[in-house]
Amino acid sequence: MSLLDFFKKKNSGDVAKDRLKLLLISDRANCSPEIMEMIKNDIIQVISKYMEIDPEGLDIQITQTESEGNNGSVPALYANIPIRDLKNSGKKTKEQ
C-alpha cells in the first residue's frame, strides 16, 4: 500500500456514518421506490416537452445538501438528467 493510498482510504466508521445519513433521509422521507419511479416518469414527461433527454440515463434520489441559509444541511431531491440533443433544445416550444 503506497502512502497515497493510505491517505485516500476512508475509515470504515466514516463510511458507515455517510451510508446511514443517506439511508435515513430516504427512510424519514417515507418515499417508496414506486413513488420515486412515478416522480421520475413525470419529470421525463415535463422536460421532454422542451428538450430531448435520455430517459434511460435519468437518475433521481433524495440526498442532503448545504442550505443557502444558515441552518446547515437540508434534504434535497437530486436529479441528473442527461440532454441528448442540445441543438434542438428550445425549438420544440416554438413549434407548439
Binding site: N11, S12, G13, A16, K17
Partner: peptide, 14 residues
Amino acid sequence: KRGDMMSIEDVVDI
C-alpha cells in the same frame, strides 16, 4: 480510535 467504529457523538448526531 482507529476509525473503524462510529463514535458516540456520531450516533447522537445521526
